[in-house]
Design a protein around this nucleic acid. Structure first.
Lengths: 225, 225
DNA sequence: TTTAAAATGATAGTAACACTATCATAAAAA
DNA sequence: TTTTTATGATAGTGTTACTATCATTTTAAA
């Protein structure tokens, strides 16, 4: 027996739900591996098809194009982090402790199991770090946004902002702080790995606790009275 | 007579310096307009060539590909902001005032003239807001970084971090705060325009002073003792 | 168990994109 | 005036991002 998590995502993101079939799960699993390996720009449906022993045409039956697949994956991550935060803060009453758990989840999400068998959460996190912003930096943002493609991020931001407001009701920027903690987490892990002169923290392999410490410091300071 | 600013950029970014010829300047000028208009993904050298009455081949004599052109433009922006900060803080001794000027420059850079005739700084700022992160979110970051393609950003971050350390010498994250103020500025202008539920500020046309107020609040709070 | 329906595979094809090469012509410098 | 350099014109190649069609396999219904 295994715990089965089913992540519910906006139906507009796919043509056919990839969670419903072997091929679909293969697409998710190996697109994560391939994007992580080659980067989003060099990733193609053809390569993916070859890797999983299928064809381009078959993949196009699930996703309109690779950009929607990226949005799908990033949404998955947002939902996954939200889920982790929810179960880990369930019995916590102190909002300050909740925020610490949230920050921990932003930074360490991939480490906390249980996950979904065909999703490598750690590599998915890498993708979010390296390619995530491309999901919403498009000329079609507004159209995609109106279809609800970023609702998972908004829900996450909303949840975090609620905790922030609980800590400090008079704080004027709960949403901005929420998204900023998330973006900073990804950004500074990326900077530490590739552009270290743009940050003060360093990351050794998977040890990202300096990032966590920094985010906690920022949050505490901003919410202090 | 006009004031001539010449921005010096890493030579590896171009094959032939576009600032040296009419065609080169045309490429810069109209690539900014076209990327702003169509977005980076839909922007092609062919479209650019048609727009300026030249040919693809000629454009390829200046830039290896459109990704390097983007890095070129983003570097231009970083240099331009650095330049503005430098002249506007020249006679300012109070570091806190300097930081305010820096934040103002991040948010309002395009408004402050004089500029370069063939560069629309306002639209260049739009590009940095919408596409800027793509400059360094590539599989080739490390290679490009080793060629110095992001040095302008590092210099800017370094300059800002110096001011931050002047304000608060014991503050542990001067570089992170510096880059975060810059990224937050761009991010929240973008969010306000396209994903308003991810922020608390709003932007009306060119009125971005709510963003400025927020950044000042964050900086002040983080650097308070 | 047979039959129908749905999913996948195999193959082919198209338009656009990202280039590279070659040669002619125009402009600038020597 | 000659020579160099910059640009234009044209053509061509491989890849990407799809779409279409039909055969085959798998699954579900009768």
């Amino acid at each position: 027996m295994s715990i089965q998590i089913r992540i519910t995502l906006n139906e507009g993101l796919y043509l056919k739900d990839p969670q419903d079939s072997k091929l679909g799960k293969n697409i998710i699993q190996h697109s994560i591996l391939l994007i992580d390996e080659f980067g989003f720009e060099s990733f193609t449906f053809k390569k993916l098809a070859e890797r999983i022993g299928s064809t381009e045409a078959s993949i196009y039956r699930y996703f309109e194009n690779k950009h929607l697949l990226l949005i799908f994956l990033v949404n998955w991550y947002w939902e996954w982090v939200s889920y982790l935060i929810e179960i880990n803060t369930m019995n916590v009453s102190d909002a300050r402790v909740k925020l610490k758990i949230i920050i921990h989840s932003f930074v360490f999400a991939p480490k906390d199991n249980p996950g979904v068998e065909y999703v490598n959460e750690s590599k998915l996190h890498n993708i979010v770090i390296s390619e995530g912003v491309k999901a919403y930096h498009t000329k079609d943002v507004d159209k995609e946004n109106s279809k609800g493609f970023f609702r998972s991020y908004k829900n996450l931001a909303n949840m975090v902002s609620t905790v922030i407001s609980e800590i400090s009701p008079q704080f004027k920027y709960p949403y901005a702080l929420a998204t900023n903690l998330f973006e900073m987490s990804n950004n500074h892990i990326y900077f530490a790995n590739h552009l270290p002169r743009l940050t003060d923290v360093s990351v050794n392999g998977n040890k990202v606790d300096e990032v966590e410490t920094m985010l906690n410091y920022f949050a505490d300071k901003l919410l202090s009275s």
